[in-house]
């Protein structure tokens, strides 16, 4: 673990509000997370927990307005990402950080071939190829791009890479399209890859194949990855560390090993017990729904749905605290333990 301790990306106390007609929605409420070099982390949580907004703010893809970054900072390799100009972003996107989008059916442009997609992204070297770029230079670049595209497809073990380059997205199956999208994100060998629920739209057997491939590639190239999923089983399979998000907050953080052997936060426990198990056991799920972001509860955001709520939970919001065993959890149930350590 000591090898992986150098931070590549750090988010500190990020707060994002969205202004709407009805009021201000506090969608991200103080999220802190860290990705070390060569590490794979997962963000898990139900839909509407702010997972996608968190990672989209890393890439500067959240439009302001309506969004407002009211607090916190995002640093990538020591450089703050908030308030970068569009030009500065262009240097980071693709080569520094790149992203795999969720839906393989809509992420590719139907009128371009796979080759055009891949080579186009390759030719983007952080600056526009203008009229002044000589034809020769362009041709060189295109040639290199083609070679690189074939190389990356071969690395992904896609059969007949040369043939695939000539095909249109519609000719490929969902699983193959998802692989192409992964190849697109990896063509510049980024330092950080953000994967927003890849494989969710696919069948289990295909999803399994793709996740195995993705994990292998990321390890081989030494890329760090943030993996977003609502499927805890997938998180267990792919990541080193897991952040559990609920209603715009990180409620628990732990290494994959320790989280799945014992979870602390009632929300994590509820999620885990809701998953149908192979021994025929399944919990009753979690009552209620995510609170209204326009008017979030004063205390703990999980209060209404929590099975172990106490009176003061509705009054003061808990803070993410480090426990004696190094785990982090945001829940009043564990407050005593923390007091115990300090006192």
């Amino acid at each position: 673990m000591s090898v992986k301790s150098e931070a590549l990306l750090e988010i500190k106390g990020l707060k994002v509000n969205f202004k709407s007609f009805e009021g201000t929605a506090q969608v991200i409420n103080g999220v802190s997370l860290k990705v070390n070099k060569g590490e794979v982390i997962s963000l898990v949580g139900e839909s509407g927990c702010g997972k996608s907004v968190t990672v989209r703010s890393i890439l500067g893809l959240v439009p302001t307005p309506p969004a407002q970054f009211t607090n916190g900072d995002i640093t990538f390799e020591g450089q703050s990402l908030l308030g970068l100009s569009e030009k500065e972003w262009q240097k980071i996107r693709g080569k520094g950080i790149s992203m795999i989008f969720q839906d393989p059916m809509t992420a590719l442009n139907p009128v371009f071939t796979i080759g055009q997609h891949l080579i186009d992204v390759y030719m983007w070297q952080g600056k526009r190829n203008t009229l002044f770029t000589s034809m020769k230079e362009k041709r060189e670049l295109r040639k290199k791009g083609r070679a690189r595209a074939i190389e990356i497809l071969e690395k992904m073990r896609i059969p007949d890479p040369e043939g695939i380059l000539e095909r249109y997205p519609i000719e490929l199956s969902g699983g193959m399209r998802q692989r192409i999208i992964i190849a697109l994100a990896l063509i510049h060998t980024p330092k950080l890859l953000i994967a927003d629920e890849p494989g969710t739209a696919l069948d289990v057997s295909v999803q399994d194949q793709i996740l195995i491939e993705l994990k292998r590639l990321v390890e081989m190239e030494g890329i760090s990855m943030i993996f977003i999923t609502h499927n805890l089983g997938v998180a267990r399979m792919i990541s080193d560390r897991v952040y559990v998000m609920y209603a715009g907050e990180v409620v628990e953080e732990a290494t994959t090993q320790s989280l799945f052997s014992q979870s602390y936060h009632p929300y994590t426990q509820g999620l885990l017990s809701s998953i149908p198990k192979l021994n025929g056991q399944m919990g009753d799920g979690i009552d209620g729904r995510i609170p209204d972001f326009l008017n979030p509860p004063q205390g703990c955001r999980f209060y209404d749905r929590c099975s172990e709520r106490m009176d003061h939970c509705s009054l003061t919001p808990p803070k993410l605290q480090t426990l004696s065993d190094g785990r982090k959890v945001s829940c009043h149930l564990f407050a005593e333990e923390v007091v115990g350590i300090h006192g």
């Binding site: 089983g233 267990r236 192979l278």
Partner: peptide, 17 residues
């Protein structure tokens, strides 16, 4: 093969696959 590709959440379950 379908069974073996279920993403499970514990080692106990993994051993059942």
């Amino acid at each position: 093969s379908l069974l073996s590709s279920i993403p499970v959440v514990s080692d106990d379950e993994q051993s059942m696959l």
